[in-house]
Each structure stands twice: as structure tokens, then as C-alpha cells.
Simulated assay, not measured.
Amino acid sequence: MTRALVLYAHPCGESFAAALHGAVVETLTARGWEVDDCDLYAEGFDPVLSAGERRGYHDLATNTAPVASYVERLRGAQALVLCYPVWNFGYPAILKGFFDRVFLPGVSFRLVDGHVRPNLTNIRKVAAVTTYGGTRVRAFVAGDPPRRLTKRTLRYVTQARKMRYLALYDMNRADDAARGAFVRRVTREMQEF
């Protein structure tokens, strides 16, 4: 049985992001996957890296202590699915804080002679399900940081064999038909993931 960690980052239950999150969880569960549904807002995840955590960042014996339960969940997953909106050309702060606090040395990467080496090789599949307020061209001009971070950085630290980046651009002007089509696309992709 495949175990997926779904990281969801949106504070509003009535949002389109919540509908996408629901489609992801329902589809993976229907496939018989074990889904660890991590709603960062509902769980009250603290995204702020403290001074003490930063000072102990490279101490492999103690750096995971403040976020040990999240590290355990990450290490127990074979798939990672991110569900979030793009805000200000980036991840929501709570999701960025998850990466800052949980993707630690000894967890997501190892330092070998000063070089970063992947360390989350238990994760074989990575997907992102997201929305952008602006057009794809606008995101491209801005460098599309969330796409690049997901498809490059996450792919590198996991060495994922399967990668999906599912984005609905121009959400600010998307009508019911466009949103419905995107939910159907996400469902299809998760059925094949």
C-alpha cells in the first residue's frame, strides 16, 4: 500500500483550494492508498523558524526535536502531494515555513564534503496541485518560483520517479466550467499517480 503525505495550505474551508484538496484526498483514498492528510492550518502548524532552531539547524542529533512528528510523517511517506494556492508568486507562508522547519539537514538532504545530497529517497512520487491568480505568462515573467522549487528542488531531494505539477492559471477570471474542468483533471491525474 502506498502512503501519501498530503500537505494542504489554505485557511478557508469554502475555498476552491479546499475543493481541490478534497478531490486529491478522496481519489487517493479510493485507490486504496493510505493518506496522511496534513492540513497545516487546521493542525496549527507554526511556520516560524525560531532563533534556537536556526542555531541548532546543523546539529543532526537535535535539529528535528521541535518538529519530530512532522519529520516522522515525511519519512513514512512514499508520495508527497502539495495542495496550495500561489500567493505573491510563492508558497503560502505556512507551507514555506514547513519547508524551512521540516526539510532539515539529515531529513531532506545530507551535506557531504560541503555538497548537498538527496535524503528523502523514500518519496518516489511528488505532485503539486495549485492555482494562480494571474496568467501563465505573468507567472513565467516572474520566474514562477513555486513551479521551479517543486519541479527542481523537491525532485532533487526526493529523487522522485514521478512528478506532476497541476496548475490552474488565471484563477481570478476562471468560471465554473474552467474550475470544474480543473477538478476533473486533478482527479484523473491522481487516479494515475
Rank of each mutant, 00 (worst) to 15 (best):
R147Y: 15
R101L: 00
S15I: 13
G52W: 06
A177I: 00
Y165K: 10
D113A: 11
K96D: 00
L95Q: 08
P92K: 08
V86A: 11
E43W: 11
W87R: 15
D113P: 03
L5I: 07
A30D: 01
R101V: 00
T2K: 12
A128V: 13
S69R: 09
E189C: 10
G52M: 13
V157R: 09
M171A: 11
L168Q: 01
Q191A: 14
A178G: 07
A127D: 08
A68L: 12
Q78H: 13
N172M: 01
G52H: 12
C38Q: 10
L120S: 11
R152P: 00
G180N: 14
R188C: 05
M1R: 11
V86R: 15
Y84A: 03
A9K: 05
D176N: 15
W87T: 02
H115G: 15
G97P: 09
R124M: 03
D39P: 03
A174H: 01
E53Y: 03
A77T: 05
F98G: 12
A178S: 14
V67N: 04
Y41S: 03
R117Y: 14
R31K: 06
R73W: 13
F140V: 11
E43F: 13
P105C: 07
T187M: 05
R136T: 15
A178R: 09
D100M: 12
T62W: 02
G56F: 01
P66R: 13
V129R: 02
T153L: 12
V157A: 02
T131A: 11
L20F: 03
S108D: 08
P118N: 14
C38P: 00
R161P: 10
D144S: 12
V126N: 09
P85T: 11
T62K: 04
N63Q: 06
N88H: 13
F103L: 13
R155L: 09
R161L: 09
D144V: 05
F16D: 01
A142W: 15
D176H: 14
R161Q: 14
D37Q: 12
M171L: 08
T135Y: 05
R185K: 15
T64V: 10
T187E: 01
E53I: 05
G32T: 13
T29Q: 03
D39Y: 13
V102F: 04
A30L: 02
D59Y: 06
Y132D: 07
P11I: 01
G52P: 05
A139H: 14
R110L: 15
R110I: 00
M163A: 06
M190G: 05
D113W: 07
V48E: 03
K151W: 04
P47T: 08
M163Q: 12
Y8C: 03
R152W: 02
G22A: 06
L60A: 06
T187A: 09
F45I: 09
P11Q: 06
Q191D: 04
N88Q: 12
V129G: 01
V112L: 14
F98Q: 09
V141Y: 07
F99N: 04
F140Y: 12
F193I: 14
C83K: 05
E43A: 13
D175W: 10
R31W: 00
E189Q: 07
V141D: 07
L40E: 06
G106C: 05
V107D: 01
T153P: 04
T131D: 08
P92C: 07
R164W: 10
A51E: 15
R124S: 08
T27C: 02
F182W: 00
A142Q: 10
H58G: 14
M163R: 03
T153S: 12
V112F: 11
